[in-house]
Design a protein around this nucleic acid. Structure first.
Lengths: 234, 234
DNA sequence: ATTATAATTTAGACGGTTCTAAATTCTAAG
DNA sequence: CTTAGAATTTAGAACCGTCTAAATTATAAT
């Protein structure tokens, strides 16, 4: 009962829980419930398939599942999810850094490999990278023991106007988006300033880069939601 | 119809064909037939499972299959098998060379990863290694185009007494054997001399290493069969 | 409160891969 | 040439992961 498929479900539940968080933390066992449809959409499966898998995962206690309500990882399930997330992020970094894969390629590659590397190889990869703390998209890498730095910062679309900020991370799921952002200099570590917010849920205007040599771009709300920033000069 | 499972069947058929060869080449389409039981044993599956898969592979023309006789790869099937073998051997070399996995670990690791790396990553790995021709066990790495150097040398157990020889390759399937051989200095590139052949299918006695500083070991026939050598000083 | 709509689950099916047990076919020894 | 034993295939079942279509339950608007 630990197939690549199961690992994908667990990882996805974990990531959706994290995304739901966005700010406040939850008490253990009270993390947000993830809906069948959210999972189905993210995994690109029919909702019925998800329901059936939830039954199985609940049965082996990787998840607590209340029909019509949603699922939540058990401590066991979370542990397993974190192991997968660790492998994924280590691989992303390794592929980018040591094998020169581009920012937008590493995700898809890691997505497959994460299910097939041994603990030994995982260790070697981590060591070769100097036991890093974040992956190329700025996401924290869980430790072997299953600890993760909590998700830092806030989505760019919640940033107040005029406040300079530092990009902490960008969503790694969509290669298109990554290329789009990279082309505009928006990657972890870059600085930006929100200059305008079009009314009625329109685009944001941001200035990217140091004040002397910055470029102004517009950015849809949904794109901005996938960029996490921390306010402040530093 | 190109699952990891199918890839494993094709690769295994290819390797068994190669092993059956051991010396003379075959005309295309007249390679040796591989029996159901040989495949079942190597893949650690029930013979009935193999029979059923052979039906499917024959149906998509990756294999020609004559019931009760055996199977043989079609050109298409061979091409696919060679792609897998290439990935496997590149991975073995990469893991050994760049990530410091030991000789006996790389096989098992590559066995899983070979099914999950993209053509891009395959290229990067090959490039990072300088497009090598042989893997750490001395086996030739097929090219992207699907060409392979034919298996060189002959099994150690067929070597005439007293003739010095060079180790070209060692079977990579069994970590135990690899550790055993490595402990005795028997790896590709090492030199040895067959000094004695015990009667009635008994062990072989070999001297390993340069004449000035060599060690003498005994070696079972089955172990010796997995070591390929070429006679001669050079 | 009722009801339309959306979300979810159930029911039933299918493809892929494997198994065991039984039937068949081959092979080699007498 | 027969036949015992080995190899192989067939038959039938199971599990995993997925699907569609239909039934059910929740939700939000009247």
């Amino acid at each position: 009962m630990t197939s690549a498929t199961v690992e994908d479900y667990l990882k996805t539940i974990y990531l959706l829980q994290q995304e739901a968080q966005t700010g406040g933390a939850w008490l253990p066992g009270h993390e947000p419930l993830i809906s069948t449809s959210a999972l189905a959409e993210r995994l690109d499966l029919a909702p019925a398939s998800v329901t059936s898998m939830m039954g199985r995962l609940a049965h082996v206690e990787l998840v607590t599942y209340t029909p019509y309500q949603g699922v939540r990882l058990t401590p066991q399930g979370e542990k397993m999810a974190l192991r997968v997330v660790r492998r994924h992020r280590l691989l992303e970094l390794y592929l980018a850094e040591k094998l020169g894969l581009s920012w937008d390629q590493v995700h898809a590659e890691a997505e497959r490999l994460e299910h097939h590397i041994s603990p030994t190889l995982e260790d070697r990869i981590a060591a070769a990278l100097g036991n890093p703390q974040v992956d190329p998209h700025g996401h924290p890498i869980p430790t072997v023991a299953g600890e993760v730095a909590s998700q830092a910062g806030a989505p760019l679309d919640t940033l107040p106007l005029g406040a300079p900020a530092l990009i902490l991370s960008v969503g790694d799921g969509d290669p298109e988006l990554l290329r789009y952002l990279a082309a505009r200099g928006m990657y972890p570590g870059a600085r930006l300033l929100l200059t305008e917010r079009e009314p009625f849920g329109g685009s944001l205007h941001v200035r990217v880069g140091p004040a002397e040599a910055c470029h102004e771009y517009t950015l849809s709300l949904s794109a901005a939601a996938r960029v996490r920033v921390t306010p402040g000069e530093e």
